[in-house]
Design a binder for these strands. Structure first.
Length: 470
RNA sequence: GGCGCGGUAGCCAAGUGGUAAGGCCGAGCUCUGCAAAAGCUCUAUGCGCCGGUUCAAUUCCGGCCCGCGCCUCCA
């Protein structure tokens, strides 16, 4: 069964396969703008793409997948941030790039093979813009900016069906006030001293100095790192229009070939039933959730609980469910891993086929349009079957493989430290318990709870855990 | 107004023309000084509403109600 993914352009499921003779599957995922911490809605897309990357590597081979994801490090928002903070652009984008990497790592997302930046590809962008001007697809505006002329590209709107839409004409849509047509978009923005600080580069021939428009960076970086035709282009739905529509226009007019053979868009993450925004105060970053006591792995799990092409409503309750589910998996795996080791000496062939196929339902669910909730369900179904004490070595291997495709790391990472006074209280309680002074032990347990800690006894030992914050 | 998506148990969620995966929560049992943990067991005669097609619909068709997203900041 090949990997099938919904194609946003043709609006149907299509099989994925490399088209280049080298057999390398080329895919590009639109990355973050590094002017602030990425929120978990952003990470939904990146986690989904990470599962896709892992699945592709399983399918085509680890060395037969080339994954490129950009960093937008110059645009209205990054520049706006430099003005707000009165700091150099590079300093701000470095800070948030580092944070993005740290969060991605914590979420167990594989780094893309190439992570190009917009500022690192000014030359490539200018080159493309010049070709577009020469081809008559772009024009210089009076202020020295350059715009793409959508009327010059008949297929414009195929992806987003923009021709069937009514463009809402507002004043802000005409912000640039130099466009010939409301649908035209900026390829190059002329330098504005009062807004842009010291951010500017020499522009395309005939244009003013300034900076690239947002859309052109992806077209230029894709051309450089993946070629003129790529096998898959992904991103969040919000990028479908205008960003991806514009990329198609730019690239196809410049290169004269099909830009992306397949388009895939993941849906929005909602919070409390509505889209995330700072003004609504429903804006979570990874750090926010870690601060509340949730593990990054639980965040990843929570982001995979919904089908990637369906809106997913994120709540703290779902975080709790994710954390619990992860705990169940962790304990079950530990349990049957030990029973599996007992069978490890048996010949593999004798125990291979059936058990491995039990876990195939996880991979199969993923192959079927990246159905992550079904994959997670399959994981538990298999787990329940294996947990009856009959787990074999092959089960254990297959289970581990299924987990790794989902990028779920079950190793326990203690992300808290125990303050000395808490440890002292716990020791005191343990001593009281050993002395069978249960009244004192209970009082101490309450004290620990008040301080935000829970003490878990076993026969010979105890464990301290912080209570979850609301 | 235009484009699109969704409504399945307390919550999340998959799925199929032939009678509902899975997770969380909850309950019961075992275990246990307490509290947990762990293990086992249980939890939708029904899939927004109304019609239609069909031997059979949650699954197809039509209408309606409700929710959400997008329409040039946006993963």
């Amino acid at each position: 069964m090949p990997i099938q993914l919904f194609d946003s352009l043709e609006r149907k499921l299509k099989s994925l396969a490399p088209s280049h003779t080298d057999g390398v599957f080329r895919f590009y995922n639109c990355g973050p703008t590094v002017y602030a911490p990425a929120h978990i809605g952003n990470f939904r897309t990146f986690v989904v793409n990470d599962v896709l990357r892992r699945l592709l590597e399983l399918e085509f081979g680890a060395d037969k997948v080339k994954h490129v994801r950009n960093l937008t490090d110059v645009d209205d928002r990054t520049i706006g941030q430099t003005q707000k903070e009165k700091r150099p652009l590079a300093e701000i984008t470095k800070k948030w790039t580092d944070k993005f990497h740290a969060d991605s790592d914590a979420l167990n997302c594989l780094r893309p093979h190439v992570e190009p930046t917009a500022t690192g590809h000014i030359r490539e962008q200018v080159d493309m813009i010049e070709v577009l001007i020469e081809n008559g697809n772009a024009y210089r505006a009076p202020d020295g900016s350059v715009y793409f002329k959508i009327a010059s590209f008949p297929e414009y709107g195929a992806l987003s069906r923009i021709k069937e839409r009514e463009l809402k004409v507002t004043n802000s849509a005409f912000d640039a006030d130099h466009k010939d047509d409301i649908g035209d978009f900026a390829l190059w923005k002329a330098y504005k001293p009062e807004e842009d600080g010291d951010v500017q580069w020499p522009g395309p021939r005939t244009a003013a100095a300034g900076r690239p428009g947002w859309h052109i960076e992806c077209s230029a970086m894709i051309k450089k790192h993946l070629g003129e035709t790529i096998d898959l282009h992904t991103g969040g739905v919000d990028l479908l229009f205008p960003h991806h529509e514009n990329e198609i226009a730019q690239s196809q007019c410049c290169n004269g070939t099909t830009f992306a053979r397949h388009w895939y868009h993941s849906e929005h993450l909602l919070v409390d039933g509505t889209t995330m925004s700072k003004s609504k105060g429903n804006y979570y970053t990874l750090s926010d959730l870690v601060e509340k006591g949730y593990s990054p792995m639980a965040v990843r799990y929570a982001l995979l609980m919904g089908h990637p092409r369906k809106q997913l409503n994120f709540t703290l309750e779902s975080m709790h469910a994710a954390e619990s589910a992860l705990g169940t998996l962790r304990k079950a795996w530990a349990r049957f891993a030990t029973t599996a080791s007992a069978t490890a000496n048996k010949p593999l062939a004798a125990q291979d086929s059936a058990p491995v196929s039990r876990l195939d339902r996880v991979i199969d669910a993923l192959r079927d349009d990246l159905n992550t909730p079904a994959a997670l369900g399959g994981l538990f179904t298999a787990m329940n079957e294996i947990s009856d004490g009959t787990a074999t070595f092959a089960d254990s291997v297959a289970f581990g493989r299924a987990l790794s495709i989902l990028g779920i790391d079950l190793s326990e990472k203690q992300n808290f430290s125990i303050p000395m006074e808490i440890f002292a209280l716990a020791e005191k309680r343990w001593a009281a318990k050993q002395a069978k002074d249960f009244a004192a032990a209970d009082t101490l347990r309450k004290e620990l709870a008040t301080a935000g800690w829970s003490m878990l006894d076993s026969k010979t030992d105890y464990k301290l855990e912080p209570l979850k914050k609301a």
